[in-house]
């Protein structure tokens, strides 16, 4: 792909982080240069490290803590074309009381729905809705022509604004993978900046912005790493692996790679960015591997809902089964957790 000089010199949105880190007048070219200067990733080494982290053995008290924490980190998700207000209400009920048999079970971090479902989620949550605070359950909405992201910027921004206006606390946007893969980093960047602006509420506060990279489509770890930097530079509060609609979705090496970027950003600026693996994490075992990876890569400070989330739907029930096993000492079965 050749970039003509005019477009290379094109200024990109003056996002504060990028100005501070990349410096100077931000242009397509300076952004590209910065991203291309990031050290590469050796896939074999990354995967070896991830699989080594996956062999940690988390037992007894650590496991009990981990299971509860996993629940507290879940964005309980339904993202189907067939979603209905009833389905969303049922999801919210599960979010509020994950295990009716055990009131000590913590609540999930958020429910994650399509933008048009936000009003039903907000309504169903009632006083349990976080509504901009750190307590209570957040409502996250996917936006920007999720999952493909193939729509005009105007549509994407309208999508975002609608969801925020309806009470979404968090926006899970998708990046334009086509633009990224064809090297138009500035375009991806500008779009994130614009969506971030669209997250502003009337009172001047912002809905949290999670930037979905759709790592399965970016394909290489080098791309994942660059896209992670790009999303952070453009103002993302969270970087998120996947929509869940593309395979592979969240894999441990991908999450590890993104955590490394977050760690490096923190080293560079002192600022903490969140990470959300989404899609494909179905078992407690997988989720615990992620917790280990977070703790040993960025530190356990990150194991809070403000900085780490699981985007998942079936994970919760598996964690509940494991919790029941820990509590009773006997293995549980699917009939003893609710289907929603």
């Amino acid at each position: 792909m050749t970039i003509d000089t005019a477009s290379a010199e094109r200024a990109v949105a003056p996002a504060a982080r990028a100005i501070e880190v990349v410096g100077g007048d931000l242009t397509e070219k300076s952004l590209r240069r910065y991203l291309e200067g990031i050290p590469g990733v050796d896939a074999v080494g990354l995967e070896t490290r991830a699989s080594a982290l996956g062999t940690r053995s988390i037992k007894t008290t650590s496991k009990a803590w981990a299971l509860d924490r996993i629940i507290e980190l879940i964005d309980l998700t339904t993202l189907e074309g067939s979603d209905t207000p009833g389905k969303v209400r049922s999801l919210v009920a599960k979010a509020l009381v994950p295990d009716a048999a055990d009131p000590s079970t913590p609540r999930v971090a958020a429910v994650c729905v399509y933008g048009d479902m936000v009003p039903y989620a907000v309504e169903a949550l009632g006083s349990a809705h976080a509504a901009g605070s750190h307590t209570g359950i957040q409502v996250a909405a996917v936006a920007t022509a999720f999952p493909s992201g193939r729509a005009s910027l105007a549509v994407k921004l309208a999508d975002t604004k609608d969801a925020v206006a309806a009470g979404a606390d968090e926006i899970d946007m998708v990046i334009d993978r086509g633009a990224f893969l064809s090297g138009r980093y500035g375009e991806v960047f500008d779009e994130i900046v614009a969506v971030k602006a669209a997250c502003e509420r009337d009172n001047g506060t912002f809905a949290h912005l999670k930037v979905i990279l759709e790592t399965g489509e970016l394909n290489t770890y080098d791309n994942v790493r660059r896209a992670s930097w790009l999303a952070i530079l453009a103002g993302g509060d969270f970087i998120k692996t996947s929509t869940g609609k593309v395979s592979p979705a969240a894999t441990l090496p991908t999450t590890l790679s993104m955590l490394e970027v977050v760690r490096d950003w923190h080293r560079l600026t002192g600022e903490k960015i969140g990470v959300k693996p989404a899609g494909g994490i179905r078992s407690s075992k997988d989720a615990i591997k992620h917790l280990v990876t977070v703790a040993e890569t960025v530190g356990e400070d990150w194991l809070t809902p403000e900085l780490f989330r699981f985007g998942a739907s079936s994970l919760l029930n598996d964690v509940l089964l494991q919790r029941q096993k820990l509590r009773t000492g006997a293995y549980s079965g699917p009939a003893y957790v609710t289907v929603d």
């Binding site: 007894t60 803590w65 040993e296 194991l303």
Partner: peptide
């Protein structure tokens, strides 16, 4: 507790 101080797994 600190999670990183994993419980013994002998």
């Amino acid at each position: 507790m600190t999670f990183l101080n994993y419980a013994p797994a002998p």
